[in-house]
Nucleic acid binder design. Structure first.
Lengths: 340, 340
DNA sequence: GCTATGCTTCGAACCGGTTCGCATGATCGG
DNA sequence: CCGATCATGCGAACCGGTTCGAAGCATAGC
């Protein structure tokens, strides 16, 4: 393998000069610069990442901590991963993906060993046990998902409260007065999936303000349970005319359930979900939904993280907590309720 | 940050001794070993990955080259990623994920810079342009997917030919004589998605041998096109009683299409797909299918790759090409055809 | 003519590990 | 009691980059 010494020798200069000629961090005569670059190209020189990382204490790698939890819906996670990966590459960073179930250990290992210059955490819980580890780390971190305590990290998330309000308001404006909100499983809530109750509380409050009834249920996040539960739910609540989904698996399962029950949206039931457009296309979901913008969130998180890594913003600059405003994508699955 | 020098000093030994005490690569007195380990623990010492990589020329990282092609179905890819990631971690390796559209450039960068000790390629095409780069690299590579030329790399794939045979034989045995095979889009084939025609050719041949009719079509890999195409396809071929799917998006879209056409499986139509069980659960697909075993393939690829990396098998040991036998998972979506 | 200045380039040190050769002292056998 | 053997630990070199201080040399200014 050709190293910088080989390049320097072939170009007839010192190693340091070769380094400067390629990095441009110091002035070098045009002639030498051209010669070095030429030689480097001919020899097929590529700097050794480990050596560079050691010398610069920059790995040009970002750690991505994703957890594939058995009770959450994996395909939704993929979108975040793609957003993060693409943005990182655009900015010159590679992604080290950890899906270790033991997130804290993985995080500690990646940061302590300086394999990564910064970290993006997905699937952040209200009281995420990875956060203390992240705060103790030397590298900056960015989160996708809102924890209870945001100190020391940059946070990006959908505004789930506003999402809950928008969903309810939308159906109320159409004249619905009997709503059901299907959330993620109770287990996700207990684990600290704050976005579940953030949306739910706001929805409940809005419904109360508007004087409409809103039933809330937690449903499974996987087949076949979710299908059965939805089926039973609709059977037990025939008066409901509006269905809100904050549960991707429920959204994916709904077409079949509606078919089984000989219902259709929006004729019999108005439906509003909360998932990404990409998700809707993949799963061919015909329901209007609040865009969850995973690519955008991933992009924002990486951008901010890189700014911190590259010291474009001071270390002690206050951390940001930024919410993406929910946007309702109309796919025609809502309409005024059928007159009784 | 605490380094090995700090540990050595605190333990009152030389750096080399500290290193040996922790690695065990040379004998060290019990007392010293205990002291060093104790001190390392107290100081919270973690070796610097870059320095270690430089010294050992081992990064303990495996590159994973996935491509998220717009005309393929991303969620299916996720399963491979999970299989690879989990296995790698079990074996002590981290995963560097590249989803760069320019696979060859990414591969060259990762290998030349020695960021990775080996590489797993997903979504391998018949004449994959990443292969020459991989062969020229110093690191070993493992593929998931069968290219035209397997020299110099270890290859793992589902036996798509056998899969095609099994699917047809299964339906023929039930008495079906009018079949349709829905494959991936023509575009995937043109790009070199050999698995499409491997399955198709075997299916066609088997059908001919059995004297049954098999219509083959390429269909879109995304909504809403795929839904429309399936709808039209079933309308245009009312005589068909057996449907074979080698297209995940088609499988995901089928429940809705069948609903629209007031058909049900297996009463009106027997359906056999080709996707993973995990996929079936996620998408709540009630169709029997050939298990595509992404986790198993990912696991096999990483295992073999690590064996090469760690020189458990000689560099010049012949490369392996291993096929996973297709297994038909019965979900009750096939039955004898309704008498005419 | 001599010094100040600026432009180039070089050499050496450093990042933090690993590994090899050798020195030291203890043990053992004869 | 002496030389061989062995266990143990040390020091130095090395991996391949980056970066700093200083040297060499030409030019400009006085």
């Amino acid at each position: 393998m050709v190293n910088i010494g080989d390049v320097a020798r072939a170009a007839g200069v010192a190693r340091s000069t070769a380094s400067y000629a390629m990095s441009g961090k110091r002035a070098v005569s045009d002639e030498v610069r051209r010669r070095v670059q030429q030689v480097a190209l001919e020899l097929g020189y590529t700097p050794n990442a480990g050596a560079r990382a050691l010398a610069t204490s920059r790995a040009m790698v970002i750690g991505l901590l994703a957890q594939f939890l058995p009770d959450e819906f994996a395909p939704a996670m993929l979108q975040y991963i793609q957003g993060v990966t693409n943005t990182a590459r655009d900015l010159g960073y590679d992604i080290l993906l950890s899906s270790d179930a033991n997130g804290t250990a993985a995080l500690k290992r990646l940061t302590d060993s300086r394999m990564v210059d910064g970290v993006v955490l997905l699937n952040v819980a209200e009281d995420d046990e990875r956060l203390p580890v992240l705060r103790a780390a030397a590298q900056p971190g960015a989160l996708v998902g809102l924890p209870g305590d945001c100190t020391g990290v940059d946070v990006f998330d959908l505004d789930f409260e506003e999402a809950g309000r928008v969903m309810v308001e939308h159906l109320v404006a159409l004249g619905h007065r009997e709503l059901i909100l299907v959330s993620q499983p109770q287990h996700v809530v207990e684990r600290g999936g704050a976005y579940v109750w953030r949306l739910q509380n706001a929805a409940v409050e809005t419904a109360a303000q508007r004087g409409v009834r809103l039933r809330t249920v937690h449903a499974a996040a996987a087949q076949p349970d979710i299908g059965r539960e939805l089926h039973a739910l609709l059977g037990a609540n025939p008066e409901a005319t509006g269905l809100l989904l904050n549960n991707e698996a429920a959204a994916a399962a709904l077409p079949t359930v509606l078919h089984e029950r000989r219902l259709s949206a929006p004729a019999d039931l108005s439906v509003v979900g909360r998932y990404s457009d990409e998700f809707a296309r993949t799963f061919s979901l015909p329901y209007s939904s609040i865009e969850s913008a995973p690519d955008r969130l991933g992009r924002m998180a990486v951008r901010q993280l890189v700014r911190r890594i590259e010291k474009e913003i001071a270390d002690d600059a206050p951390n940001v907590v930024r919410f993406v405003a929910p946007e309702l994508v109309d796919r025609g699955s809502t309409a005024p309720p059928r007159p009784a």
